[in-house]
Amino acid sequence: MYDEKCLTRIGGNIRFLRAACQISQQEMAERIGVSQTHLSNLEHNHVQISLKLLLRIANLLGCSLETLLDARKASDWVSSRCESDETRQEFYSPEEVQQLLKLLRLSKQ
C-alpha cells in the first residue's frame, strides 16, 4: 500500500536511477522535455511532478512507475539490471551509486 511519504521519495529515486544508468541530468532533461534546472528541482523535491512526466521518465529508463515510487523497488531494479554481463558495463553497481549519492550529500553540507 502507498502513502503520501512515497511522494517525497520520488525525486531521490529518479536521481538514483538516473545515476545508475549513467545518464546526465542534462541528457535526461532533454529527453523528457524539461530544462536541466527543472529536473534538478524534481530530484530535490522542490517542485511536484506530474503523472505525465513520471511516465516519460519511466519510459526513458525502461522501468515501471512503481520503481519510481518505491526506493526498495528502485534498488532491486538497479540490481537486476546490473546482474547481466551485457548491461554491467552500462550501469554502476548499486554500491557505487550509494557511494556517489553519499558523496553528493556530503558535498552539499
Rank of each mutant, 00 (worst) to 15 (best):
E83Y: 05
L55H: 13
G62S: 11
D70Y: 04
E27N: 07
A29Q: 02
H44N: 13
F91Y: 15
K5Q: 12
S79Y: 11
R9T: 15
Y2K: 11
L69W: 08
V97R: 08
L61V: 03
S80T: 10
L104E: 12
K5I: 05
E4Q: 11
S84F: 07
Q48C: 09
R88W: 05
L65F: 03
N45G: 08
K5N: 12
L106V: 10
L51P: 07
I57R: 00
E90A: 15
I57H: 01
K52D: 11
R15V: 03
I32K: 03
L101V: 06
Q48I: 06
S35H: 07
V78D: 05
I23H: 02
Q26M: 09
G12D: 07
E4I: 13
C21I: 02
D70C: 09
S35I: 01
C21K: 14
A71S: 15
N59L: 14
L53F: 06
K73H: 05
A74Q: 04
R105K: 15
D3T: 11
Q98L: 15
I57D: 05
M1L: 06
A19L: 13
S79C: 12
L69M: 13
A29P: 02
R105S: 11
G12F: 11
S107T: 13
E95V: 10
R15C: 02
I32H: 02
V47S: 14
S80P: 02
R56T: 00
A58W: 01
K108P: 01
L104H: 09
H44A: 10
F91K: 09
W77D: 07
T67W: 03
L106Y: 12
L68M: 04
A71N: 06
L39N: 03
S84G: 06
S80E: 14
R88V: 08
K73S: 12
R31V: 00
G11A: 05
V34T: 09
L39T: 05
D85P: 09
F16C: 00
S79P: 05
S107K: 15
L53V: 07
T87E: 06
E4N: 11
R56Q: 12
S107D: 11
T8I: 10
I14Q: 03
E66K: 10
N41Y: 08
N41H: 12
S79K: 14
E86N: 14
C6Y: 10
Q109F: 12
S24R: 00
M28Q: 03
C63V: 14
S40Y: 13
L68H: 01
L54S: 10
S35G: 10
A71K: 07
K102P: 00
N41I: 02
S79L: 13
H46N: 13
E86L: 15
Q98T: 13
R9I: 08
L65I: 13
